[in-house]
C-alpha cells in the first residue's frame, strides 16, 4: 500500500471539501437569496444565512411570477418544461428503439443509407441550422405549440446507436428460440427486446431528461406567448428589465425551481446516470 501517510489523507480531504464548496457555493447563495426580501438582498453585502421569506417568494413565483415579466406564473412554465423534457425523452427513446430494431433485425434495400442518414443528425445540432429550422416549424404552424417544442428535437443518432449496439449483443440463439416458439416481430419486440432493454432505457431516460429540460435556444426561438414559455425562458424574461429593478428574490426562487427536477433525477438515479453518460459517449 502506498499513499497512506496521515498528512496526505488530511490534505486530500481538504482539497475535496474545498472542491465541493466551490461547486456548491453559487447554489447556496441562490438559495439564500430566494429566501430573502428584495430589500435585504439589496443591502450590500447581502445576508449569508437564509431569511424568512421562503414560502412567500416561491408561492409568488409559482402563482404570480415577476412583475417585470408580465406576472406570468412560473407554475405554467414548470409544466411546459416538464412536457418538453418528457416529450423529448420518450420521443427519442421510442423512435430510436424502433429504428434500431428495424436496422438490426431486418434486411431490406437501402438499409445502410437510412443508417447513415440518422448518423448525419449528429453533425447538425440546432445551433448550426437555426433559421431554416425555425422557418420549417413556422411553415408547419408549430410555433407556440408543444409539438413544436418537442418533435423537431426527437431524432437521435446517439440513442439509435446505443440500442443498435445493445441489440447486437443479444445472442442469436434467443432470436432462434423465439422464432421456433412462433414469435413474430411484434411479440419478439414486446416480450424479449423490450424487457432486456430496461436498464438501457432507464439510463437513457436520465440523460435525455436532463437534455430536454435544459434546452434553451430552441424554446427561445419558437415560443412567443408567455403561456408557452419554458422556465429557462421565463428566467431570461425576468432578467430583461431595462431600467426597472430586477426582482431578484423571485428570479432566484425561479432559478431554484428550474434546477430542482434535473438535479433530483441525477442524484436519485446516480448509477443509471453514470452508466448513461458513459454509454452515450461510446
Amino acid at each position: 500500500m502506498i499513499d497512506r501517510e496521515r498528512w496526505l489523507q488530511v490534505f486530500t480531504h481538504a482539497v475535496l471539501i474545498l472542491g465541493v464548496l466551490i461547486v456548491a457555493f453559487p447554489i447556496y447563495v441562490t438559495f439564500v437569496a430566494s429566501t430573502q426580501a428584495l430589500r435585504d438582498i439589496m443591502q450590500v453585502p447581502m445576508p449569508m444565512l437564509p431569511g424568512g421569506h421562503l414560502l412567500e417568494n416561491y408561492l409568488q413565483a409559482i402563482t404570480g411570477g415577476a412583475t417585470s415579466a408580465g406576472n406570468s406564473p412560473v407554475g405554467i412554465m414548470l409544466f411546459n418544461s416538464m412536457v418538453m423534457a418528457l416529450g423529448i425523452t420518450f420521443g427519442k427513446i421510442t423512435i430510436s428503439m424502433l429504428a434500431a430494431f428495424a436496422i438490426v433485425y431486418f434486411r431490406f434495400p437501402w438499409r445502410m443509407l437510412f443508417f447513415w442518414m440518422i448518423f448525419i443528425t449528429l453533425m447538425l445540432p440546432v445551433e448550426v441550422r437555426i433559421l431554416p429550422t425555425y422557418k420549417v416549424v413556422s411553415d408547419l404552424g408549430m410555433l407556440d405549440t408543444y409539438a413544436g417544442l418537442t418533435i423537431p428535437l426527437i431524432a437521435s443518432a446517439t440513442a439509435t446507436f446505443l440500442f443498435r449496439q445493445f441489440f447486437l449483443t443479444i445472442p442469436a440463439e434467443l432470436f432462434d428460440a423465439a422464432r421456433i416458439d412462433g414469435a413474430g416481430p411484434f411479440s419478439f419486440f414486446k416480450d424479449i427486446l423490450f424487457p432486456l432493454s430496461r436498464t438501457n432505457i432507464a439510463a437513457l431516460f436520465v440523460i435525455l431528461f436532463i437534455f430536454g429540460w435544459n434546452q434553451y435556444l430552441w424554446p427561445l426561438l419558437i415560443t412567443t406567448q408567455e403561456n408557452m414559455y419554458t422556465i429557462l425562458i421565463g428566467i431570461n424574461r425576468m432578467l430583461t428589465v431595462g431600467d426597472d429593478q430586477a426582482e431578484w428574490q423571485i428570479i432566484m426562487a425561479t432559478t431554484m425551481l428550474a434546477m430542482i427536477p434535473p438535479v433530483f433525477v441525477v442524484v436519485v438515479m446516480q448509477r443509471l446516470f453514470v452508466k448513461g453518460l458513459i454509454e452515450t459517449e461510446k
Binding site: I95, A99, A102, F106, F108, R111, P132, V136, A155
Partner: peptide, 25 residues
C-alpha cells in the same frame, strides 16, 4: 414493408427538421 414503417418516424423527423433545413442553409 414492416422495417420501413419502423424506421419511418425517425427518418421523417430527420428529413424534415435536420436534413432539409441544413440543405436550405
Amino acid at each position: 414493408v414492416l422495417p420501413y414503417l419502423l424506421l419511418a418516424p425517425q427518418i421523417v423527423v430527420t428529413l424534415v427538421f435536420f436534413i432539409w433545413p441544413a440543405f436550405q442553409a
